[in-house]
Computed example of a mutant assay.
Amino acid sequence: MRRAAFRILALTVLLVACAPVAAADEPLGSADAVESAYTAPGPWAVSALEHFGCCDPTGAAYDVWYPTDLGARGVRHPILTWGDGTSAVPRQYDYLLRHLASWGFVVVATENQNTGSGDEILSAARYLIDQAADPASVFHDKLNTAAVGAIGHSQGATGAVNALIESDGLIETAVAVEIPAQMFCSTPRRCVDTHRVSSGSVFFVNGADDAFVSPSENLPGLTGLQSNHAYYDAVPPGVPKTWGTLNRANHNDIQGQPDCARASIPCTSGVQGYLGYPTAWLAARLWGADDARRAFEPGTGEFYRPNPEWRNQIGAR
């Protein structure tokens, strides 16, 4: 087991070193109506603030992205709490987080660079809930504190699912993007066991070019939760779950613009493919958007149709 893991890690380092540093392909397109709709920017203008508040359990500050016209027409905005990948910071995901805020979400992100335990991600959600109750806060009476989701990348994807598990129902859904195989966990607290998901819902998204850190299927010689398919299968029956693999996407594409500008390597095409269906999933779960909900009806929804940009689309409720 250890030898197999070492060989895979060595191959991963080699692939990262040889990965393209600029966009090798045209930006990903959207094949269907719901994906296309949610890939486009939403109707809200967006504001963002670094170091907005303090602090998570490690003393790290929080950054926020939010609709500029908070609470317009009496709207109360759902909360999203974000988890960074290892050694990353929230501003590296600015394009994605601005996109989510343009769809009416208020996004809070700990600046902590090791979020796998989920503690910091859950703490950030609770921080915004406290802000909603504080008359001195810009978020006072503007947030739907009963509609909270978690989303994260790489180690932060592990943390988003852990935050869902540990939230006692506070977090309704998690989107796990490029969740690493368990062999890459640095400590047991930065692993996740999806057998333990007992409420809410989960959407797993990985890139087809991220074949080692976040593979679709367990690699030869490895057992347990070593792939997105294994994580998906381990979520207990009765918990809504979905998994899909984005073609031509690598581990750090989610950090990019609609190309690989500003992304760390390895990046193949950029953030574009991660905008549509993840945003739709969150809109369905936290806004109650009917069009988005129908897109994820297991077996019949738009997400499960043949799509040149996706593979491995499966779902259950």
Rank of each mutant, 00 (worst) to 15 (best):
T194I: 08
V239K: 07
A125T: 14
E178C: 05
C260S: 08
A31N: 12
A163H: 09
N312I: 00
A292K: 01
S201H: 01
F203W: 01
F203A: 03
G288Q: 06
E111D: 15
A132F: 06
G315K: 01
G276N: 08
I265D: 02
R196F: 01
N252L: 11
F139K: 02
M1Q: 11
G104H: 13
L49S: 13
S216T: 13
C267S: 13
C18P: 00
N114T: 12
T58W: 05
W65I: 09
L275H: 09
Y127D: 10
Q255C: 08
N247P: 00
R262W: 13
T110E: 03
S30T: 12
C191Q: 03
L275C: 08
N206P: 00
E178N: 09
I314V: 15
H229I: 05
F105S: 07
A292H: 00
D168K: 11
A284F: 01
V271E: 10
R196Y: 01
G301Q: 01
P215F: 00
G256S: 12
Q272A: 15
P308H: 02
N228P: 00
D210E: 04
L80C: 10
P306V: 01
E111L: 09
E50F: 00
F52Y: 15
V202M: 07
A101R: 08
T223R: 08
S87W: 12
A125H: 14
E50C: 01
I8W: 10
A280V: 06
F204R: 01
T12P: 00
G270Q: 03
Y232C: 06
G238W: 04
A37D: 08
W103E: 11
G118E: 06
W281R: 02
F296M: 02
Q313A: 12
Q92V: 07
G59Q: 12
I121M: 14
L164P: 08
Q182C: 00
C260V: 06
A263S: 14
A17H: 08
V108P: 10
P278E: 07
A292M: 02
R196Q: 14
L100Q: 15
F184K: 04
Y127N: 12
A109E: 03
F212Q: 02
E166V: 00
A289K: 07
L70R: 09
G224C: 03
A234K: 02
D25N: 11
I129Y: 10
I165C: 10
Y231E: 07
H229T: 14
G169H: 11
L80K: 07
D63L: 03
L128A: 12
A31M: 10
A88Q: 14
A249L: 12
L225R: 01
A208D: 11
A136T: 15
A147E: 13
F303I: 03
D32Y: 15
G238H: 04
S87H: 13
A249R: 11
V205K: 04
L143H: 09
L222I: 01
W243F: 11
P43S: 13
P90I: 05
I254D: 03
T173F: 05
R76H: 15
L225A: 05
P237I: 00
W82F: 15
L70S: 08
H229Y: 03
N112M: 08
C55I: 00
W44H: 14
V213Q: 06
F105W: 07
